[in-house]
Design a protein around this nucleic acid. Structure first.
Lengths: 356, 356
DNA sequence: AAGTTGCATGTAATCGATTACATAGGGTGA
DNA sequence: TCACCCTATGTAATCGATTACATGCAACTT
């Protein structure tokens, strides 16, 4: 159960064991390196006997092909870059898991870049892909990256297969995996309206965010469908974080006339908001209904349990990874996949009339 | 702002641009490839004029060194493997961010392996390190991995620098970055006891988990320090997940004599547990106090706000990454780093006498 | 002035696999 | 029996950088 990591304590520095190379396997199996390579890559182009000898030699030596050499020659790294804006966000980490799973099954490794709002990092990872360090990339950040120095000679713009996940990339011709944010937001808004809410507040995501734009449109769609007017005063700026929800709550608490329902575009914000309302002595949902977006794990155990929109996060990750793998292996890939969302009715939303 | 990923739409297949190689740069700068390489790796071993010409040529061509070639020759990948048991867990993702940050600054990339309890994956990633795909690894999973087939000839046991994060690896001689789980658990237990709690339940982590063992010992230490007896009936099995907390809550609700306080070894469990108690009509903390462990983001906005033990997660990640980088660059690395934890007093714990 | 030192640079070996091309031998058809 | 083809295998070029070693030249020492 333990093997690796014994460091070089026991043996003298010189005796440090070197990894077996294809040469060593070839010699041991009494074949050429070409045969070893073929025995692994295209087994049916090698005689059964030779193959058996090779496999035995591989087992004996513990040979593992050197990926650097392999990749140098074959121009394939079997690595995929995943670019995301915030690694510490629950929402993304569940998606990541779906991605990792699928990539792993297909024999690909995953390199993660947490962009962290830093353009410097963005440039770095652009170079990263350009250097051929990965075969493809999944972007969760809503835009392509790259150092566009058009002035200079001819910047190396290598293109590798890309997939956009969650946040569509406007104008880019890459497969998009997403949910229908607009429709989902509209549906939730109509749900609130159907319960009798007429003053519905909206806590937004970051202003220039594509998700946010879609959801905001959906919110307006929903109001319109329900015959309600849009009131800009009921739009509260946010950025998907718990803190933003807390701030939005403070804003609401301070108002003389309050909405009867609040639609938060992330569960984090909804939970932060409920917390603040609660501290101020307001009851959810009796005094004010709160709806979220995403259906993170904590939504179900929030107090009260959060009514929200379920996003199939793991499946999103899997779908994105599959699409990328299709691309990488030269298969046709779907241009756009829209996974279904679902309203999850819990306890944080009720009719405005039913005062407890 | 967009550059990469234009795919090969415009130009015909054949014209696909190939990345600039060191040769191209050398020709353009009218120097040898060796000089180009040196201009990048050891700038002061190259004349200022040559260096300038090289840099200009690099800018013109957009040259980025091919990592496969580089790594093949120099046996360095500038990649670090991070092995963790569950990527989708909030606790880990914050740590990951700390790791990524620090690695990035030092020029290292991060490859993630979500073990997901699968031994198959474990073996795969053992081979991964053996193949020299990464320069070092950070292990969050509490044990070394590796295919120890002692029987066979001489299995390739390559050793790369390792660092154990959070979960110490028993018997392994690698730097450990951790918090003092035992002391922290003891402190929390004593805190509860000092408020007057005499029947304190303990919701555990997974049975064979090292963290769990430490915390459990700490729990017993705390009881002993407070002069309280240890009652096995008050130990409820868990596994750090929200669901485990829910189950533990159901267990408690069903009991005739209940503890006055519950110490959960993760915030997730504490939140799930409070949820269940609440549904059953019990009040926290009036009827029962609940304490957590970790201080995840949601602890502060739970209802009631959770009293817990703060772990400096980002700093843990940073410290681990720094230690590994020290190792990788041949500097001495601290054998063990223990970061301080802190009890965060919020609203979920109170004295058992103060019935609301 | 001859010898020594040291810097800037070039030449070419090297890392470890993949794979185009060459070749030997066995089988088949005429 | 000969020509041909197909299969299994080997030989060696190749991927793109790093770096040991060699070289040429200038400056400095005595």
């Amino acid at each position: 159960m333990d093997d690796l990591g014994q460091a070089d304590r026991a043996e003298p520095e010189e005796t440090r064991i070197r990894a077996a190379r294809i040469q060593d396997v070839a010699r041991l199996a009494d074949v050429s390196t070409a045969t070893v390579s073929r025995a692994l890559a295209t087994p049916d182009r090698v005689s059964p006997e030779a193959r058996a000898r090779v496999l035995e030699a591989i087992a004996k030596t513990g040979y593992v092909p050197n990926p650097a050499a392999r990749s140098l020659r074959s121009q394939k790294t079997f690595m995929v870059l995943v670019v995301l804006p915030d690694l510490s966000n629950t929402f993304f980490s569940k998606i990541l898991r779906g991605i990792e799973e699928t990539l792993f099954e297909a024999g690909y490794g995953m390199i993660i870049s947490d962009l962290d709002g830093s353009p410097e990092k963005e440039a770095h990872f652009a170079a990263f892909t350009a250097a051929g360090r990965v075969d493809g990339a999944i972007l969760l950040n809503g835009h392509l990256f790259g150092q566009s120095r058009e002035g200079e000679g001819q910047p190396a713009r290598i293109s590798i297969p890309l997939v956009a996940l969650c946040e569509a990339i406007p104008g880019a011709d890459v497969p998009q995996i997403e949910i229908d944010n607009r429709a989902a937001a509209s549906r939730m808004t109509q749900h609130l309206a159907s319960l009798g809410h007429r003053r519905i507040a909206y806590v937004s995501g970051p202003a220039n965010n594509i998700l946010e734009r879609e959801r905001f449109l959906g919110f307006k769609d929903g109001l319109e469908a329900a015959g309600l007017p849009f009131d800009p005063a009921l739009v509260i700026p946010g950025d998907y974080t718990i803190e933003a929800g807390v701030r939005a709550g403070q804003d609401l608490v301070g108002r003389s006339t309050r909405p009867t329902a609040v639609f938060c575009t992330s569960d984090e914000m909804a939970i932060g908001l409920m917390r603040t309302l609660f501290s101020a002595g307001l009851r959810v949902p009796e005094d004010i209904s709160v709806a979220g977006f995403d259906d993170i794990e904590f939504a179900a155990v929030a107090e009260p349990a959060l009514t929200t929109i379920h996003q199939p996060r793991r499946e999103l990750g899997q779908a994105a990874a599959s699409a990328l793998i299709d691309l990488l292996q030269g298969r046709p890939s779907p241009k756009r996949i829209r996974l279904e969302t679902e309203i999850v009715i819990r306890d944080s939303v009720t009719s405005p009339w039913r005062k407890s």
